[in-house]
Every structure is written in C-alpha cells, then in structure tokens.
Nucleic acid binder design. Structure first.
Lengths: 72, 72
DNA sequence: CTCTATTTGTACGTATGTATG
DNA sequence: TCATACATACGTACAAATAGA
C-alpha cells in the first residue's frame, strides 16, 4: 500500500470539497499561503495539486485575485 | 499574445511528437536530464510538463527505468 | 547476490514577473 | 503607488526502483 504523495492527497481533498458542493462553482479557494498553513505543507505541494486540478479543468487561477472553482 | 510558459511549450512539443507518431506507444522518452539539456531548461520545466502529460494519461513514468508513451 | 549508477518521484526554499484591488 | 496573490522559474536533496557489472 504505497502512501499517496502529499500533493495527491491535497488534490483529492479539494476535489471532494468541489464534488460535494462544499466549494461551489465560482467560490474562491484559500490562497496558496493559506493552504500551506492549513495543511502544513510547502508551496510545492500546493503548486502540484493546483497544477493537476487546473489540468482537469476543475479550478481556474486568476493572477492577483485567487484560484476559483470552475463554472462547469 | 501572452508568451506560453516553457513547460507548456515543452508539453505541447512532446504531445505533437506523440500524436504524429514520432514517439509511438511504448517508446521511451529521453530522461529528465536529457530533456533539460536538449531544450535548455531546468528540471522544474520538465517536471511540470511530465506532470501535465501524466495527468492527461499520455505518458507513464516508471521509476528507475524511464517515462514511456502510454499504450492508448 | 551485492554494489553501483541511472532515473523517476517527492519535497523544500526562494526569486522574479504579472495582474488585481 | 502599494499590498496581495497567483504563475513561472531555478536549484537542490533524499528516497525508491531498476538495470547492469
């Protein structure tokens, strides 16, 4: 049972929140710094998770504003 | 016209090679170090490109061996 | 079978640029 | 103009897996 990487777990965590409606479309996610503090991880973990979620089209990053849940 | 990030260009470059058959399924891609040297980029660029391609299911990484083009 | 080299994967830190408010 | 926040980019280290001598 290979332990999942931190960034995978973070990505799945956010994916669940989006799927469950806890994070509705248009909702702003916590900032990178906030996610680092909340989950006790480094920026790389958050970075990789965001990169994956963006590649999946689940979230959209807006520079200077934040990362938002995609509309569809 | 926003200049595409290096890792996006690298990912698209590899994607084209896969789509065109230049890199057939099962083919081994150059190693991370090789890609860094070939394209004159850092490991982060290669890392992000690989992360994206793996998320898309286009390539499969095998630790200790290399990264291969997915079978389908 | 053991040792070593190679390669991928994960992880941390930091700097610069850009865009928004 | 300044503060905030995301995006890109570079460097490095360690662990695990595999192949080859």
């Amino acid at each position: 049972m290979p332990p999942s990487p931190k960034w995978v777990e973070l990505a799945e965590h956010l994916r669940k929140q989006i799927a469950s409606g806890d994070l509705p479309p248009g909702e702003k996610l916590p900032s990178t710094s906030q996610l680092c503090q909340i989950h006790g991880v480094s920026s790389i973990v958050v970075r990789n998770a965001m990169l994956t979620l963006k590649a999946e089209g689940l979230v959209v990053g807006v520079p200077g504003v934040g990362v938002f849940v995609a509309e569809r």
